[in-house]
Nucleic acid binder design. Structure first.
Lengths: 317, 317
DNA sequence: AACACTTTTGCAAGCGATTGCATAAATTTG
DNA sequence: CAAATTTATGCAATCGCTTGCAAAAGTGTT
């Protein structure tokens, strides 16, 4: 292994000068610095991260902890990963992946947390490091989230504007803030417009939504639009409608939420509120890094809320 | 920060004894060890990873490097991640994520590489650490892969066994071993059966496949089955058929490959060869760890080949 | 009880880098 | 041009832990 000392000897300077050439270039004579850089190249010198971390107390590692069984394999997270990873790389931080139940091995400079449910907050509190949430929380932690209220409000308004007269909100059966926000967005939109509406909460799976439509088909007059809390539900609902002989989008409309399935299935063009997950990932990474670099500058909870964008397709007229 | 010394003082032993209690429990008197363990608990002692790595020359970090633009957001990788992450956690290793173009920050004990193309091998060779590939390679590196030949051979045979009389292989237009294997599996199966067949290679996107069917519709007599190199292509093909008024599965069959979209879209029940990605991820992690722990035991290239499983659904009769 | 063991614990050195302080060189100033 | 100041480099200590060897304690044998 090539060490600072090796470089120093070869460059005829002390290892301190080499160290400074790397970390504080302005403190080293230009000429000398370039010659040191060259030696580093020749020797393929790579600073030892462990040694650095030991003395500087900074690992340059950020952990993304996903509080959900990873075998559910949400493609959702993949886009998040892309955003986070890109941003961290720009700042020369490494991204480490962990799940809630994973053995806590290795240290890090901060955490990005996602998929957190109420029961997990105890775990979070015991963390002694900067934390940024992906998803709203009422505990005062900084977070990045999409505007769930706006998303459902807007998609509901859109459905109404397309002439659908009966609205169904198909939510997810969890007790979490994001779900309330979505529901409230829907409620406000229908109340304002005075159209008839109903709500249901289902487990977040296609077939559950399909079954629901099958079993309650009588409740849905023509001109019903289903505003869903996820694309999965949207797709399931659409199937249910088709199986009952309903015509999408002429007689029934469907709007999803997330937008993660969009690029994958060309035919299933679901109208949906698309979350800019890559952007949100970047934002979370950026916020965390800023918290790490300026530990005391911030007093209040920082909230970065990024709007979802309506992406219209063939499941609405 | 709680250090070994703190624990040692509190437990009235030297820090060496504490260290041994952790790393070589059998060398410490049972009674003493349990009392040390207790002190560690009380003080919430966590060994400093950097210090450990510095002296032991092992970081307990594995890097998964994905050689593909991550913004393509293949859900494929998510399942892989799950498998790798689970296995690494069992062995108390951390998983670090990197892309080919990401700044190489931090050290690791080994690499799992996926999405590698011919042009990337130069980068790999310069690595000075154990490497396991995800996907076949002819360079002598250990790898884990699904049996691409078997997968396409089997799905083609299946299509033939269901009575389809004209076979179309819809491949991906890349120059990689895995693609040849698939093609060869298809060729062998049709040759053996003597059915008529044709091949095409397309970019791996739904709409490309849909367009292809539209433009070549005249070439496909009734009783044609499309055997595809990915689920995306399969879904695109199916759409193309439907748009042309073809009946799936009665007059046209479609078989995909991967199985990653299966659980996501209930209605689009594509018959497909399902890769057990979680298992494959585990296998890759296990193989890498064994290479790390027994550096010289192995002479030849180790190949772990895991069969895909046919999952029949509504796109074949 | 004295010897040769084996088992258990402690000491000192060092992994590769960075921090604080001291020194040397270069530059400015009166 | 010597003194004061700025800029550039080097020295020593240290981060928390593990390795190699030495010392101490315990065990058994004659």
């Amino acid at each position: 292994m090539v060490t600072l000392n090796d470089v120093a000897e070869r460059a005829n300077v002390s290892k301190m000068t080499v160290s400074r050439a790397i970390n504080h270039p302005e403190q080293v004579r230009d000429e000398l610095r370039t010659s040191i850089m060259q030696v580093m190249q020749e020797l393929h010198y790579q600073p030892n991260a462990a040694a650095r971390a030991l003395v500087s107390r900074s690992t340059r590692v950020i952990k993304l902890t996903i509080f959900e069984d990873m075998d559910t394999t949400e493609p959702y997270y993949m886009m998040l990963l892309a955003g986070i990873s890109n941003e961290l790389n720009r700042h020369q931080y490494a991204l480490q992946l962990a799940t809630s139940n994973s053995y806590q091995v290795g240290e890090c400079d901060g955490y990005i947390l996602t998929g957190i449910r109420q029961k997990d907050y105890a775990w979070v509190e015991q963390l002694q490091q900067p934390v940024v949430f992906f998803g709203r929380n009422q505990q005062g932690y900084d977070y990045v989230d999409t505007d769930n209220y706006q998303a459902l409000y807007e998609s509901t308004r859109y459905a109404i504007s397309r002439g659908y007269e009966h609205l169904v909100f198909v939510g997810i059966d969890v007790d979490e803030p994001f779900e309330y926000d979505r529901e409230t967005g829907f409620r406000d939109a229908v109340t304002e417009s005075g159209v008839s509406a109903q709500l249901v909460k289902l487990a977040n799976h296609c077939h559950v939504a399909t079954d629901y439509v099958q079993q309650h088909w009588a409740e849905f007059p023509k001109n019903t639009a289903f505003v869903c809390a996820s694309d999965r539900l949207g797709i399931g609902i659409e199937d249910g409608i088709t199986l009952n002989g309903g015509k999408v989008p002429d007689d029934y409309g469907v709007i999803g939420f997330d937008g993660v399935l969009l690029n994958q299935i060309a035919s299933k063009r679901l109208t949906t509120m698309q979350q800019p997950l890559e952007v949100m990932g970047r934002a979370a990474a950026k916020l965390l890094l800023s918290n790490i670099q300026h530990p005391h500058e911030r007093q209040d909870q920082e909230k970065i809320i990024i709007k979802s964008r309506l992406s219209t397709a063939e499941s609405t007229r």
